[in-house]
C-alpha cells in the first residue's frame, strides 16, 4: 500500500478538524445562547464539519501513484533546524542581552551556519549592520528598545 502526500495531508487535516471540533465544544456560551441562531460556537462547528468532510474527500480521491510519495531525501533538515534554533535563541537573547548584542550574535551564527568561515566577513557583515539598525530604530525613529535583563540585573536596573 502506498501512502502518498495526499493521504498524509488528508489524515493530518482530518485529525486537525476533529481536534478543532472537540475544543470548539469547550467555548463558553452565554446563558440563552443556545436559542440564538448564531453564537460563538456556530462558525467553529461548521468549520470542523467542513474540514472533516473535505479531508475525507481528499483521502478517498487521492490517487495511489508511486510518484506522489513523500520523499524527504535531499532536503537539509539539519541546517534548517539549526537556523530556526538560532531564531529561538535570538528571541531569548533579545530579552536578556538587548537588541544590539542579540542581533550581532544572531547574524554571526547565521552566517556561520550557512558556511561563512572568514572571521573578517563574519564581523564586518554583522557589527556595522547591527549598529546601523539599532541607531536608526532607537535614535532616528525614537523606538524604545528595552536593555537586556542581564545588564539591568548586574547594573541594578
Amino acid at each position: 500500500m502506498t501512502l502518498t502526500k495526499d493521504h498524509i495531508g488528508g489524515l493530518v487535516f482530518l485529525l486537525l478538524s476533529v481536534a478543532y471540533g472537540y475544543y470548539g465544544q469547550q467555548i463558553p456560551l452565554l446563558p440563552g445562547d443556545e436559542w440564538e441562531p448564531f453564537h460563538a460556537r456556530t462558525l467553529p462547528d461548521a468549520l470542523a464539519a467542513l474540514g472533516v468532510v473535505l479531508s475525507l474527500v481528499m483521502l478517498v480521491t487521492a490517487e495511489r501513484k508511486p510518484e506522489g510519495k513523500l520523499v524527504l531525501a535531499g532536503y537539509d533538515f539539519g541546517l534548517v533546524a539549526k537556523l530556526l534554533g538560532a531564531v529561538l535563541v535570538f528571541a531569548l537573547a533579545l530579552e536578556w542581552l538587548g537588541f544590539l548584542l542579540a542581533t550581532i550574535v544572531f547574524l554571526v551564527s547565521g552566517f556561520w551556519l550557512l558556511g561563512e568561515r572568514r572571521i573578517k566577513t563574519l564581523f564586518l557583515g554583522s557589527v556595522p549592520f547591527a549598529f546601523f539598525i539599532w541607531f536608526s530604530l532607537s535614535q532616528l525613529l525614537d523606538i524604545y528598545l528595552a536593555p537586556g535583563k542581564l545588564f539591568a540585573s548586574v547594573m541594578g536596573g
Binding site: 478543532y20 470548539g24 467555548i27 445562547d33 467553529p44
Partner: peptide, 8 residues
C-alpha cells in the same frame, strides 16, 4: 467579538 468568549 460578539460574545466576548475566549475561543481556542
Amino acid at each position: 467579538v460578539m460574545s466576548g468568549a475566549p475561543r481556542f
